[in-house]
Design a protein around this nucleic acid. Structure first.
Length: 463
RNA sequence: GGCGCGGUGGCGGAGUGGCUACGCAGAGGCCUGCAAAGCCUUGAACACCGGUUCGAUUCCGGUCCGCGCCUCCA
């Protein structure tokens, strides 16, 4: 059995992971608010937790992992987008959801087991809010329902922030309907031009945090294994989820393990929609293959800050070229059955140490280039491909990887034209007419085609 | 002010109380008609100051610098 170690934000420790129930491992990850295209910062947790999902499936069996990633389709940012463009909210959210799914698929992510939408779970939220009111953790005031933070003794255990400091922290909104400055909204009224649902407190809509408490409870139960998201969600979002869920469910523990990925930076600055310095996944996919973007994301450990640069993307591309280059020379050789390198698994199992795992992948790739026997090659091919499978890369046919037209440099030459030029060049080489053969090669290079002669054939690739 | 993260060779980026990260780039070599790809070899680092230790980049304390969070954020 593979020993999986995970870092828990709650305890600030890396520990061996023991699921509550090995035949039903539960993971909840906060998904997108669907009002605009995803930027690469949004993609980071999706990719990181996709790798964890693949790893959990490998360790506990594909049928035994339940991965829930929500879609927030009711939010004031969506309302703002609607007011800006005049588009119907349904149109905005359904278009954005479609784009999100397409972008995430292009980045090589598996679909979660369940992708629940907030608007499909309003009754569950109302029920949970009613429960919180009835047990004294929440109250209604001026059509708002708020969670009363002083009513929960352990509030702040995840972020290590305490109530007094929060209030001193100045940015706390002391709204008239709040009994305590640290209280947060569970339900708020909607005007007639805002989306709303009927509730015991009038027509309104849920606050930001309640959906995740309601939906995780619906699909994973009161207590489950892993809850993930970006570091910026630790406070207030996850802290408030804990407060709502633990109080409503009467449990001490909500998620066993809290995992948070580090920020993604651009030019040393945190990237976020509010700062406006974001790069959309969609734009990036015009210039880079999804696997390149994905590998760039995995070159840094998930808890570290990641500075997004074109140099990083170039390095990711270069690594993929070398993996595919090793695989290409044995493209027609069948691989051995899936076999995972122990070193690779050890790296990935150690709190998803993807940089260490990539080191192993590079070693396997070099071993394959050096391998003498077909048996050794086939076995290494199996190891490389199964490692790639866990990371969600190396899914392309190696030949196609090198021949695919780079979106940056469009090649004017068709494959047929390239082949006939290569034929002409090889004829010249057979005649020892190296002046002509080098001329043809230079011309191809001008069109972005690089040739690789081997004993038997001449391979080519687009750069 | 509180909470938290980080400072590693030209660059990216792991890790470790004593020994090679790895990748990119550089140098030399093998292979090649020449290249390309690949392979081999190779130089180069652990912010600063103390402490613990036979020995610290790794542990402890302090200093400096950078960054994030403290109710919009993945």
């Amino acid at each position: 059995m593979i020993v999986l170690k995970l870092y828990n934000t709650k305890t600030r420790e890396k520990r061996i992971f023991h699921p509550i129930n090995e035949s039903s491992v539960g993971m909840y990850v906060c998904g997108p608010t669907v009002y605009d295209y995803s930027h690469i910062g949004n993609a980071r947790p999706v990719i990181i937790f996709d790798v964890l999902y693949r790893l959990l499936r490998k360790v506990y069996g594909e049928e035994n992992v339940n991965y829930v990633r929500n879609i927030t389709d009711v939010d004031d940012k969506i309302i703002a987008a609607h007011q800006d463009s005049g588009e119907d909210i349904d149109v905005i959210t359904s278009r954005t959801i479609k784009a999100f799914r397409s972008d995430m698929r292009d980045l090589g992510n598996l679909e979660p087991s369940i992708e629940p939408k907030a608007t499909d779970h309003i009754p569950q939220m109302i029920k949970m809010i009613e429960k919180l009111i009835s047990i004294g953790n929440a109250y209604q005031e001026q059509e708002h329902v708020c969670f009363n933070v002083p009513s929960m003794v352990n509030y702040g255990s995840l972020s290590k922030l305490n109530r007094e400091e929060l209030i001193v922290g100045a940015r706390v909104d002391i709204a008239p309907y709040k009994r305590d400055p640290a209280d947060f909204i569970l339900w708020k009224p909607s005007s007639s031009d805002q989306p709303g649902w009927n509730s015991p407190w009038g027509r309104g809509r849920p606050g930001w945090h309640i959906e995740c408490s309601a939906m995780s409870n619906e699909y994973l139960g009161a207590t489950f294994d892993i809850h993930g998201g970006g570091q910026d969600l630790i406070f207030p979002h996850h802290e408030n989820e804990i407060a709502q869920s633990c109080c409503a469910n009467g449990e001490d523990t909500f998620a066993q393990i809290w995992m948070h990925n580090g920020y993604l930076m651009v030019d040393g600055e945190k990237m976020s929609k509010s700062l406006g310095n974001f790069i959309t996944v969609r734009d990036l996919l015009h210039s880079y293959h999804g696997e390149t973007i994905r590998l760039c994301m995995l070159m840094t450990h998930y808890r570290q800050p990641l500075n997004w640069t074109s140099n990083g993307l170039a390095q990711a591309k270069s690594s993929l070229d070398s993996f595919y280059g090793a695989l290409r020379q044995i493209n027609d050789l069948p691989q051995f059955a899936d076999e995972l390198s122990e070193d690779f698994m050890a790296a990935l199992s150690d709190d998803i140490n993807t940089p260490e795992a990539l080191k192993v992948l590079h070693e396997l790739s070099r071993d394959l280039n050096k391998a003498k026997t077909e048996k050794a090659k086939a076995r290494l091919k199996g190891k490389i491909l199964s490692a790639g499978k866990l990371l969600g890369i190396l899914k392309c046919d190696p030949d196609n990887w090198f021949k695919s037209v780079s979106p940056n440099l469009k090649s004017d030459l068709s494959d047929d034209q390239i082949h006939s030029l290569i034929l002409a060049r090889n004829n010249a080489r057979d005649d020892k007419n190296f002046v002509l053969s080098d001329k043809i090669r230079d011309e191809l290079l001008q069109s972005g085609i690089v040739l690789e002669d081997s004993k038997s054939i001449t391979r080519w690739k687009r750069v």
